[in-house]
């Protein structure tokens, strides 16, 4: 995938993810609604390719107002990845053509790999993840399970131990997927399935859309480096 194609695909997917998130805010109080109406308009301009790179610059500026409004990300890690992607894509448009643009976009791809690698590493270091207790606690008392019936999974230690190691090993070994284009596609498909499961079980739907939006950056980076 060429740099221009990957950058364009990332900005379109990111704009779609932002529209999906923004629509969810339209039932909020008026001030909050206004911020997200403006965001939808800017996203539509990005998708249509109108006035580039100004809509992206507008979105980057608007992201500061959104951060100020909620005193941080609205939905934790997923919004942080959205911000990172937005700022990297914007920089990849406005920096001088050449290495600087590639560096900004490559940083986004590298962060995607790190998002799995580091998440796997911190779990591997934690004995509670290694013995399945951490995942049992996620189901037993964390905020995330979307229904009470899912809390019943906390009583299935063997399944959760296997699931814990599946998550740790997948996250830790994800960077190995970079060795070739086919292995990367397989790795990304597995990663998307992982995010989809998290969206269904824990209601973390924003992770699913935001991480998928960044996939073109790693597909381009893999092609550029290997």
């Amino acid at each position: 995938m060429t740099f221009d194609a990957a950058l364009r695909l990332t900005e379109i997917l990111l704009a779609l993810a932002f529209i999906q998130q923004s629509l969810e805010h339209l039932r909020a109080p008026r001030g909050e609604q206004l911020l997200f109406l403006v965001r939808i308009a800017l996203c539509l301009a990005v998708i249509a390719g109108i006035g580039a790179p100004w809509p992206l610059l507008g979105l980057a500026l608007l992201s500061l107002f959104v951060l100020q409004r909620f005193q941080g990300p609205y939905n934790g890690g997923s919004d942080r990845m959205g911000l990172l992607a937005l700022w990297c894509v914007t920089l990849a448009h406005v920096l001088p053509p050449g290495k600087a643009r590639e560096l900004a976009f490559g940083y986004l791809g590298a962060q995607l790999v790190l998002s799995y690698l580091i998440a796997g590493w911190v779990k591997l270091r934690n004995p509670q993840w290694r013995n399945g207790q951490a995942l049992r606690q996620v189901f037993a008392f964390s905020t995330y399970p979307v229904s009470e019936s899912l809390r019943g999974w906390a009583a299935r230690p063997n399944i959760l131990l296997a699931a814990s190691w599946a998550v740790i090993l997948f996250e830790l070994f994800f960077p190995l997927a970079l060795v070739s284009a086919p292995t990367l596609m397989a790795g990304l498909a597995l990663a998307a399935a992982f995010h989809f499961a998290n969206a269904c079980l824990f209601g973390l739907n924003r992770f699913f859309w935001t991480w998928i939006a960044v996939y073109p950056a790693i597909i381009w980076l893999q092609d550029r480096l290997f």
Binding site: S63, L64, L67, Q68, Q71, G72, P73, G77, D79, R80, M81, L83, L84, W87, Q111, L114, S115, L117, I118, A119, V122, K123, N126, Q128, A134, Q137, V138, F141, S142, T143
Partner: peptide
């Protein structure tokens, strides 16, 4: 604002590193 933005631009990615008591 910079304090709010920086954790997004230089993320830590330590999701679920430990399961704390939940509100």
């Amino acid at each position: 604002l910079l304090k709010l933005l920086l954790p997004a631009l230089i993320p830590s990615w330590n999701f679920f590193d430990e399961i704390a008591a939940s509100p």
